[in-house]
Deep mutational scan, measured.
Amino acid sequence: GEEMDTAEIARQVKEQLIKHNIGQRIFGHYVLGLSQGSVSEILARPKPWNKLTVRGKEPFHKMKQFLSDEQNILALRSIQGR
């Protein structure tokens, strides 16, 4: 696969979550399948791509996919709003 700019992906995700008022817990649960603790760690201190294991890269693939389609963001927003 291609190398990803993990810091940039994390920054964009944080931006979207704040902009749409989506909590990290909801994002972690529905998008990444991770706990809030793992999510906040990944978003606060993303490791460089070449330092990640295959498993460590997974959340970034999912985040990139999440960012690529605004429908994903809107869907999360409606879950959050319940």
Rank of each mutant, 00 (worst) to 15 (best):
G1K: 12
G1Q: 11
G1P: 11
G1Y: 15
G1A: 11
G1L: 12
E2F: 09
E3I: 10
M4Q: 07
M4P: 05
M4H: 05
M4R: 03
M4D: 05
M4W: 07
D5V: 03
D5H: 05
D5M: 03
T6L: 00
T6Q: 00
T6I: 00
T6V: 01
T6N: 03
T6D: 01
T6E: 00
A7L: 10
A7Y: 10
A7H: 13
A7P: 03
A7N: 09
E8Q: 09
E8R: 08
I9Y: 04
I9L: 09
I9Q: 03
A10K: 02
A10D: 01
A10R: 01
A10G: 03
A10F: 00
A10C: 11
A10N: 02
V13L: 04
V13H: 03
V13I: 09
V13Y: 01
V13Q: 03
V13E: 03
V13M: 06
K14S: 15
K14R: 09
K14V: 12
K14L: 04
K14I: 06
K14M: 08
E15G: 05
E15A: 12
E15L: 12
Q16H: 09
Q16A: 15
L17H: 00
L17A: 02
L17F: 01
L17G: 03
I18D: 14
I18V: 13
I18R: 14
I18K: 15
I18C: 13
K19E: 06
K19H: 14
K19Q: 07
K19I: 06
K19Y: 06
K19A: 08
K19S: 07
H20M: 05
H20I: 03
H20L: 05
H20V: 03
H20C: 04
H20K: 04
N21Y: 04
I22Q: 01
I22R: 00
I22N: 02
G23F: 06
G23I: 05
G23W: 06
G23C: 11
G23E: 15
G23N: 15
G23D: 15
Q24K: 11
Q24F: 10
Q24A: 09
Q24P: 10
I26L: 13
I26A: 11
F27H: 00
F27M: 01
F27Y: 00
G28R: 03
G28T: 04
H29Y: 09
H29M: 11
H29L: 10
H29A: 11
H29F: 08
Y30V: 11
Y30K: 10
Y30F: 09
Y30M: 09
Y30T: 08
Y30C: 11
V31K: 00
V31D: 01
V31A: 03
V31I: 11
V31N: 02
V31Y: 07
V31H: 00
L32N: 02
L32R: 00
L32I: 03
G33A: 05
G33S: 05
G33I: 00
G33T: 01
G33Y: 00
G33C: 04
G33Q: 07
G33P: 01
L34I: 11
L34N: 05
L34K: 05
L34D: 06
L34A: 07
L34Y: 06
L34M: 15
S35W: 05
S35I: 05
S35V: 06
S35G: 12
S35N: 10
S35D: 15
S35M: 06
S35P: 14
S35F: 09
Q36T: 12
Q36L: 13
Q36K: 14
Q36P: 15
Q36W: 12
Q36R: 11
Q36E: 14
Q36V: 12
G37H: 13
G37L: 12
G37D: 15
G37W: 11
S38I: 13
S38N: 12
S38C: 14
V39P: 03
V39M: 06
S40Q: 13
S40E: 15
S40R: 13
E41R: 01
E41D: 11
E41M: 05
E41T: 06
E41Q: 07
E41K: 02
I42S: 02
I42L: 12
I42A: 05
I42F: 06
I42M: 13
I42Q: 03
I42K: 02
L43S: 01
L43Y: 02
L43K: 00
L43P: 00
A44V: 08
A44T: 14
R45A: 14
R45H: 15
R45G: 05
R45N: 13
R45F: 13
R45Y: 10
P46Q: 04
P46H: 02
P46D: 01
P46M: 04
P46R: 00
K47V: 12
K47C: 10
K47F: 05
K47G: 06
K47T: 12
K47N: 05
K47Y: 04
P48H: 08
P48D: 06
P48S: 08
W49R: 03
W49L: 04
W49T: 04
N50W: 08
N50G: 09
N50Q: 11
N50V: 05
N50C: 15
N50K: 10
K51E: 15
K51D: 14
K51V: 14
K51N: 13
L52F: 00
L52K: 00
L52Y: 03
L52P: 00
T53Q: 05
T53D: 15
T53Y: 01
T53S: 14
T53W: 03
V54W: 08
V54R: 12
V54D: 14
V54F: 10
R55E: 15
R55Q: 15
R55M: 12
R55A: 15
R55W: 10
R55N: 08
R55V: 11
G56L: 10
G56P: 02
G56I: 06
G56Q: 15
G56R: 02
G56A: 09
K57L: 06
K57W: 03
K57G: 03
K57R: 13
K57V: 04
K57T: 04
E58D: 09
E58A: 08
E58C: 04
E58K: 07
P59N: 15
P59W: 15
P59H: 14
P59F: 14
P59D: 14
P59Y: 14
F60R: 00
F60N: 00
F60C: 02
F60A: 00
F60M: 03
H61T: 11
H61I: 15
H61R: 13
H61W: 12
H61E: 13
H61Q: 14
H61N: 09
H61S: 08
K62Y: 03
K62N: 03
K62G: 02
K62D: 01
K62F: 03
M63A: 02
M63W: 00
M63P: 01
M63D: 00
M63E: 01
K64E: 08
K64Y: 09
K64H: 07
K64N: 07
K64I: 13
Q65W: 07
Q65R: 11
Q65A: 12
Q65P: 00
F66I: 03
F66P: 02
L67Y: 03
L67W: 01
L67S: 00
L67I: 05
L67H: 00
S68M: 10
S68T: 09
S68F: 07
S68P: 02
D69M: 07
D69Y: 05
D69P: 02
D69K: 09
D69F: 06
D69I: 04
E70C: 09
E70D: 11
E70I: 07
Q71I: 07
Q71E: 14
Q71W: 06
Q71M: 08
Q71L: 07
N72F: 08
N72P: 04
N72K: 13
N72W: 08
I73S: 13
I73E: 03
I73P: 05
I73V: 14
I73Q: 05
I73L: 11
I73K: 04
L74S: 10
L74F: 12
L74P: 04
L74A: 12
L74K: 14
L74D: 12
A75N: 15
A75I: 08
A75F: 11
A75D: 15
A75Q: 14
A75P: 05
A75Y: 12
A75L: 11
L76G: 01
L76K: 01
L76T: 02
L76Q: 03
R77N: 09
R77H: 10
R77S: 14
R77Q: 13
R77F: 04
R77G: 10
R77W: 05
S78K: 14
S78R: 13
I79P: 07
I79N: 09
I79A: 11
I79E: 11
Q80R: 07
Q80A: 14
Q80P: 10
Q80W: 05
Q80K: 09
G81K: 11
G81L: 10
G81H: 14
G81P: 09
R82W: 08
R82Y: 10
R82G: 15
R82P: 15
R82T: 12
R82F: 06
R82L: 11
